[in-house]
Amino acid sequence: MPRTSQAVIARAKDAPVELVTISVPDPGPGEAVVRVQASGVCHTDLHYKLGGIGEDFPYLLGHEAAGIVEEVGEGVTDVAPGDYVVLNWRAVCGDCRACNRGRPWYCFNTHNAAQKMTIADGEGAGTELSPALGIGAFTEFTLVAAGQCTKVDPAAAPEVAGLLGCGVMAGIGAAINTGNVGRGDSVAVIGCGGVGAAAVAGARLAGAATIIAVDLDERKLAKATELGATHTVNAGEGDVVEAIRALTDGNGADVVIDAVGRPETWKQAFYARDLAGTVVLVGVPTPDMQVPELPLLDVFGRGGSLKSSWYGDCLPSRDFPLLIDLFLQGRLPLDAFVTETVGIGDVEAAFDKMHGGDVLRSVVVL
């Protein structure tokens, strides 16, 4: 029998979110229903609400989630009812050109549930919902592709484990997977919100010797220091590029991670890296943003790599269990990213706190 569930939706562009009852279908072939236990409030959810990602309203918000598999559909063998899982939004297909070349983290045909959840009653009853990043986790139950469920150690609390579903994984992966940060490297992270702070933690985990956190907000710089930054730069107090060079013997950092995703910060990252250094763009730009003018000779002459990081270039089946194990061993402070826990009716207020820079991450506990 289809389930009904309380859920947070964005009905129209920039309208306040609403708590409604939705209908969640029984899982079909390759699908799973998950009872959500916790879901982080991410900037991506706010982008959906503001219309910055698409116009397929109404959106079922939420995607950084952990919970318990309730039911699986035909042909599902990797997870079973009762499994504790973190949800991911890149369920690899196993058969596209990237997967067949042994690079599944670049999968070009990731899976989502084929069926749609709908508004159950009231205004717009029967309207199909677009789940954020194919998940939609601000709800008691959600329907996903079974490949979006990654089993992890249940000893990790859901409000912590779920953060790997997006922002924390994106930041850690930007440093370790995309940036290939190694022991003794120098790293600069521009923008120290949730993703940037995670990139700092990832650089520390990888053994970087110098980790420079850059932000306008002293509160975020303080948190970055707690997570492993060796130096901080307030971007409002001088030239960011020169500050990073001054902290790296005048050379620039081996890896510079742009966790903001604006033309100005990307250009700073480009010039703040050492010769043959690496720039990693993990902050998500809006569609109107353009790469700033750069002399082509500078692109050639500085060498190195200019990379974008999709979801931290992660492979959930590999990375989620590993990072949870590191957390449980006390080697990765995932719990430091949880500023507060809130109820399902508090998402709009959590967006306000996020916009004001008052939290690293609010987490909805169901």
Rank of each mutant, 00 (worst) to 15 (best):
W310D: 11
D352W: 14
A199C: 04
I119A: 07
A7V: 04
V181P: 00
I53R: 11
G54R: 04
E31G: 08
E264Q: 07
D319T: 00
A213L: 05
S317R: 09
G122D: 03
S305D: 05
A203Q: 04
D45V: 12
G193H: 05
P154T: 12
E348I: 11
L296R: 07
T210L: 05
T150C: 01
Q268D: 12
D249T: 13
V260N: 04
A201V: 00
G312W: 00
L281W: 09
V256K: 02
C166H: 04
R273K: 13
L323T: 02
L306A: 14
A198H: 05
P131V: 03
D313F: 03
E242W: 15
L163M: 06
A206F: 09
G147I: 07
T286E: 13
A146S: 05
G357S: 10
V338I: 06
H355D: 15
W266N: 13
A188F: 09
D153G: 13
P2L: 11
A157K: 06
G356C: 14
R90E: 07
K49T: 15
G196K: 10
N180P: 05
Y311P: 01
T21H: 10
T230R: 05
G196W: 11
E128R: 13
C314D: 02
V233W: 12
N180W: 08
N109I: 11
P131N: 06
P292C: 06
P333R: 08
R204P: 00
T278G: 03
G52T: 15
A276N: 13
P287T: 08
N112W: 13
T286Q: 14
G193Y: 12
I244E: 04
W89L: 04
S5C: 03
I211E: 08
A32G: 07
N112S: 15
I119D: 14
N88T: 01
V284K: 07
L133T: 13
A12V: 11
V160P: 02
V8W: 07
A269W: 08
N88Q: 01
I212C: 05
V72Y: 00
V347R: 06
P58H: 13
L19G: 04
R90G: 02
A145P: 04
P16Q: 15
D121M: 13
G28M: 10
V256R: 02
P81C: 10
G236E: 01
V20D: 06
A201Y: 00
F351G: 07
F337N: 05
E123V: 12
G165S: 03
Y59E: 10
E242Y: 13
P158F: 02
K223D: 14
Q6Y: 15
G303C: 01
T230Y: 05
G312S: 02
L294S: 01
S362W: 10
D78A: 03
G94M: 04
A188C: 12
S23V: 03
P2T: 14
V92A: 05
I190A: 08
D249G: 10
H47E: 08
A170F: 03
R3N: 10
H63W: 05
L328E: 11
E31I: 11
R361W: 15
V255F: 08
T232W: 09
V72Q: 00
N234K: 01
A235F: 10
C93A: 06
V338Q: 07
T127S: 13
M1N: 12
A125G: 14
